[in-house]
């Protein structure tokens, strides 16, 4: 997904770290990663995060989200939606297609986001001062902290022959942290790939009303 961006900017002191939040294990991510690799000789880091450790550390709630980190290891942009938009919510569910206007707007928004990354790498633009970066950070509550512990436990139980109890822990995790789409979708997605975007998913998206599924980055 980020290969072109990496290829374009890799000689300018830039690195992409793509982390697959993949509780079912590396094999589920591998086909996508192998496909990305074929197109290029050198690659960015493509990491597998079965326990959603990154979501715990950075308080993430959905994919794709990105954090921008400077040369000193400082966060210069808090977690934000990385190039995705809510246009999908208006798609025709029968044909799974979007209107040409929405498709164009979606691509334009994605390109705008990539341009912002390019500008940051080339000139430092869009890097936030400390106060602004801090103000954009999501707050971890006690419920969210417990949700991450239960999610970790649920993944472990699923992987060690106790899917029933694993599911129960994951569902509790999701209930404790309702803003986390990653937890909800991984709790829903045990047997069938695609169930995480089935009818229940659409119902839950509709229930957002005016609230965004992918909050736009504040560039």
């Amino acid at each position: 997904m980020w290969q072109a961006l990496y290829d374009e900017l890799k000689d300018k002191g830039f690195m992409v770290v793509a982390v697959a939040e993949e509780s079912r294990g590396a094999e589920h991510a591998r086909p996508w990663i192998d496909q990305a690799r074929k197109s290029s000789e050198s690659s960015y880091w493509q990491l597998i995060d079965t326990d959603h450790r990154l979501s715990d550390l950075y308080n993430l709630v959905n994919v794709p989200q990105a954090i921008w980190i400077d040369e000193q290891g400082r966060i210069v942009r808090p977690p934000e939606t990385a190039g995705s938009t809510d246009h999908f919510r208006r798609m025709d569910l029968k044909t799974r297609t979007m209107s040409p206007e929405d498709q164009a707007a979606r691509l334009a928004a994605r390109e705008e986001y990539l341009d912002a990354v390019r500008a940051w790498v080339n000139t430092g633009k869009h890097a936030l001062p400390a106060d602004a970066a801090r103000a954009g950070l999501p707050k971890t509550t006690r419920e969210i902290a417990e949700a991450h512990a239960r999610f970790r436990l649920g993944v472990w139980l699923r992987a060690h022959g106790d899917p029933v109890e694993g599911d129960r822990q994951m569902n509790t995790a999701s209930a404790l942290h309702p803003d986390s789409w990653s937890m909800w979708r991984q709790a829903a997605d045990l047997d069938e790939v695609g169930k995480a975007s089935g009818p229940d998913f659409w119902k839950r998206v509709q229930a957002l009303g005016d609230r965004p599924y992918y909050p736009p980055p504040k560039l």
């Binding site: 994919v63 990105a66 954090i67 997605d189």
Partner: peptide, 30 residues
């Protein structure tokens, strides 16, 4: 900081990238 394996199992640590700008992004196949 964190250490996670890449798809071949090689562990990678974020702080190894000090000195570069890092775009840290999540994704999923689901």
């Amino acid at each position: 900081d964190f250490t996670l394996p890449d798809v071949d199992g090689t562990p990678r640590t974020l702080s190894q990238l000090r000195g570069r700008k890092v775009f840290l992004a999540t994704w999923a196949s689901w």
